[in-house]
């Protein structure tokens, strides 16, 4: 358990630094953003309490916000993501429930389970993010394009990072 906390602590810095120094500067077609820090929030273990989860989401969001001068935007979207996570866990419970101490990663739950779970959450996270950023529903179709392109960009980046870094330590 303790080891997990320490690993997650380092993962936080890793994800946030990569996000603000590298991925914030990579924009696809002027509309697609990769918010890879979402991968950090998605892969917390199933048993994590929802209140703690939302506080972690808020802290992560605010940290990313400080670096991109968009205070509150990422925080709001991340809190929403962490709030909705348990609902999706209930929706997609596999036969025999979740093994104890398991995490929602592709290596533990399989790629198809992970992609449904994460695509839905990333879509909701990005919808919240871009609508709050636009300050409402004007520029709606432009915002919609941003949401859809960014969802796929973030999803593929998150999956790649999972297979690159997270696989070994999860299958132990």
């Amino acid at each position: 358990m303790n080891r997990d906390v320490i690993l997650k602590f380092f993962a936080f810095f890793g994800y946030v630094l990569f996000q603000v120094l590298l991925f914030n500067k990579m924009v696809l077609f002027g509309k697609g953003f990769a918010f890879i820090y979402v991968g950090f929030l998605l892969t917390f273990q199933f048993e994590l309490g929802i209140i703690i989860a939302m506080l972690i989401g808020f802290a992560t969001g605010v940290t990313v916000d400080i670096f991109s001068n968009t205070l509150g935007v990422h925080a709001s979207a991340s809190v929403l993501l962490m709030y909705l996570r348990p609902f999706l866990f209930n929706l997609f419970t596999p036969h025999g429930g979740y093994p104890s101490g398991a995490k929602p990663t592709p290596s533990m739950m399989g790629f198809s389970w992970f992609s449904t779970y994460s695509l839905i959450l990333i879509l909701l996270h990005h919808s919240m993010l871009f609508i709050v950023e636009a300050g409402g529903f004007h520029l709606f179709f432009y915002t919609l394009q941003k949401i859809i392109i960014s969802t796929f960009f973030t999803f593929s980046s998150v999956v790649m990072i999972q297979y690159l870094f997270a696989k070994k330590k999860d299958t132990r």
């Binding site: 989401g57 808020f58 969001g61 205070l71 509150g72 709001s76 709030y83």
Partner: peptide, 21 residues
């Protein structure tokens, strides 16, 4: 309803930050 209340509270905090920013 503590989870939902904390959720609402944090959303308010976020929007407060957005407006203040």
């Amino acid at each position: 309803y503590r989870a939902f209340l904390v959720f609402i509270l944090l959303q308010f905090a976020s929007f407060f930050l957005v407006v203040q920013n």
